[in-house]
Nucleic acid binder design. Sequence first.
DNA 1: TAGGGTTTT
Length: 734
Amino acid sequence: GAEGGRLVTYNRDENLALAAQRSRLPIFKCRDAILFLVETRATTVLVGQTGCGKTTQVPQYLAEAGWCAGGRMVACTQPRRVAAQTIAARVAEEMGTPLGRDVGYAVRFESVCTPGVTKIVFCTDGVLLRELMDDPLLTKYGVVMVDEAHERSLASDALLGLLKKIQRRRPDLRVVIASATIQAETFAEFFDTRDVPLKPALGPAALAPGARVPSREPGIVSVEGRAHSVAIHYLAKPAPEYVKAAVATALDVHRSEGPGDVLVFLTGEDEIEEACEMLRDAWEEETRAASGRRMSGATNALPGTTNERERTRGEPSNASPGIRSRLVVCPLYAGLPPAAQTEAFAPAPRYARKVVVASNVAETSVTIEGVAYVIDCLFAKKKSYDASRGAESLLVAPVSRAAANQRAGRAGRLRPGKCFRLCTELDFGRLPEQETPEMLRSDLASLVLQLKHLGIDNIVHFEWLSPPPAANMLKAIELLYALGALDDDAKLTSPLGVRLAELPLEPQLGKALLVSDDMGCVSEMLTVAAFTQVTSVWQSARGRQKALDEARDRFAVAEGDAVTFLNVRAAWERAGGVDGGGKSRAFAEKNMLSRRALVRASDIREQLSKHVSRFGLNPSRSIAPAKDPDPVRRAMASGFFANAATLAPHGGGADGCAFRSVRGGGTLYVHPGSVLFRARPACVVYVSAVNTGKEYMRDVTSVDPEWLPELAPHFYAKRNKSGAEPPPDAAFAF
DNA sequence: TAGGGTTTT
């Protein structure tokens, strides 16, 4: 039929079962309270514990109560695309309709909705933020529910600020914010606009005659969850080496605790793989030693950590398991090849216990069934942003108590569980209560551009949930001015600024793509832009550095990573590309390339291609980079002129190939993953700099230093005479 | 000489 040929059979019993399940969810008792608040208040804050059913039920309640009248929809935003897709599928099933008809979803590259028919749409917060550019008052929606708002992602914080603005023009719009307890007051206070006058309603957003103006004092509903209790255990004294402590604790759990899988939180690939090896080796040795002792009649005296640990709650008496069960050890992190990830999700074989050693992916992004024990090192790699250097850092830091509680909750999904925190209870109390919102530790250039596009010229007076540091804001505006996206009055330029705002790319990369029209290499820059958007097209180097270096050298050119990407894509396309089946799969494997990354890069390239076509550029316009790589290099320099570095005098010294940042004078190094790692180009531009111990430049292109003042005269010519010259004062009059 | 936590448009 119209819905992709899927035949839907009405199954009365099945629907009865679903209806019964729905009414048994904890949130069902709050149905009327929620609907009353949404009816009478502009904003409702919903505090819903894990498993209460808020995400699947509330949109249905709203649709049932008539919030989709007049062809409007209920939107429910999610921070992650998989969540939007799977929740939509679940709700469609509950409503007995095919996915994409009454219930749909919208994520990047994929919208499964039927315009005019779909009532409930689950989308990523990023998609809804983008949608504002076409429909600044979100007129398609009667209610917007922002789910997981406590995570404080950049997109959801921005969305909440904008929704507050929209509410002043749309008294008919309702906002529901679903959040964890500790953040509820923050949201309720932010949306309390009792003293703020409404603005005149615009066009179709006007309130229907006779409709009631809602109170602008937010309502709060709290719904108990269905998670099981998790007993928390702390160390009696600090453990300085948390990887070792985590391994010892996991073995201890395996030796002495009842059934249930173990989830260990560590910070990154290296730690995770190291811990997995230690676990496998230790358990193998212990099993061997135990069988030896049994032969000689020795007691079961194994090195343990039990005595070092303070038991904070009544401990069930676990008879030591008589059978030494098998231990299945699985690493889990986002960069792991998909096949290996599947193992971590597969149930453990009978009589075996599974230990999943995971990064932060397991905190919110994925759920592993069967976990009853969590071991938490209480650290994570965290991103921060230093505006003065225009660089990001990715360093290990302690997590917040809120994050630790989220991690602990992973042990209580099926039955009461236990969480072992690898710190003392006193030290735990000293951790920050919550994570720093992403808004406060991000490069804001792209967001400022989007806000300008929405007509928000006075960025400083924008009502931020957490106002970002002034230095970060200034840096973003300075960059946008230098790129020509903002004029002397800090207004968005047209067409350049408008186009940069519409492109789903960082503005520097967007600029490089747009100027490629002048250089005649649009097709090439589409490829380069797409390739820089994926984590890495190369497979993880771990344990196979030599093979990876050799593979990369087959494509590498002296001009750097951008031109190398063109070689990779050309070869991948010759092998069949996305639709190449086994041939392109074999190509990727042979050349240590990640098929997943290549496919995603192709999707991004296609999307960017549509955007530039709309701007009137010819996406097929191409040069022959093998004959002349300079147009691509010049395009990169036109976008990334602010990210330039020159080889330091004696740059090839003991600490590697040092470069001096043209902007701040700081020392930079070429990332070992770059094809220019061993090269010594006099001058380079880079797409990003990340400090992971040293400051590394990623996606590096060698450029002629003469090009920089030529391609960015306003940025360079003045700067050379008088050092760091800021843009005219007018640019700061935002 | 030596390395990428996690999302998303």
